[in-house]
Amino acid sequence: MTAMQPGEQRDEVEMLSLMLLIRRFEERASQQYQAQKIGGFCHLYIGQEAVVAGAVAAVRDDDYIITAYRDHAHALARGTSANACMAELFGKETGCSRGLGGSMHFFNRQNHMYGGHAIVAAHVPLAVGLAFAIKYRDEDRVTLCFFGDGAINQGSFHEALNLAALYKLPIVFICENNLFAMGTSVKRSTSLKQIVDRAEGYDIPGEIVDGMNFREVRDKIAEIVSSIRKESHPAFVEVQTYRYRGHSMSDPASYRTKQELEKYRLDDPITRLRAQLTREGKLTHEQFDLLDKRAKETVLASVKFAEESPQPPLDKLYDYTYANGANS
């Protein structure tokens, strides 16, 4: 992606292309996981693509983003190559975390992607720290902090929201509400009727956004970010979305009905943006097919790259425990 200037809007065809890349990447990751090329846990983002695409389209490249463990899409959205992402899943040295992080710990310092964090809600205080640093240095950046609906009942989430409100920090808390924390529905985990009301408890303005609609996500977050840049404050967005797959690769998602899944599939975020663009004469069927073909090729090439990449060397095992210094 090209660097974006303040106030400029990202090209929507480019963002559709990103959403396709995310979907094809996740499909291929699923296949490679089943082929046992990928170890550990692997959480797929399929169905939620419009959330991260809309959010990054609303901010500058130098704004900070940080997320939980369903993080492949956020790394890709921040310009991490499919090669580096797939290689990370394969545990290779060419991965975006040198094969030391794995699926749940993708990082890209250069592009301001601050992880990839696997303990539910433990990164929300980190996000507040990123926002604290922005204000401390009197910069006009904003932090976008993504998390799932499962995070909102964790203590660190509440402590972090209170601190952000107290110190008036420039941060957007983006709750990707996909209705299930692993297998537990929001209804069974949260005492509130709607998640966004959590924000009210901390005097933080909150909004609900349709997470299957790229444009709505982008426009709402752009509006919030513009307000934050004028005068630093936290904000909360509940983005209502849906994951088509289980919580992780090992989850058949038997806690929900086929009908429910089908209902959301009919509202697919990629199909929706494609239809909008086609209707407006900005995208032909041929162009779409070409974008999809390119996404598939990029991902296929990333598998080859990952397979051919070297393992992290054994003799560097102790090199990443302490910075600039020997171990005890």
Binding site: Y114, A122, P125, L126, S156
Partner: peptide, 11 residues
Amino acid sequence: NGFAGLGVGAA
């Protein structure tokens, strides 16, 4: 937990 995490994020 909140301010310790804030510190790690700022770091």
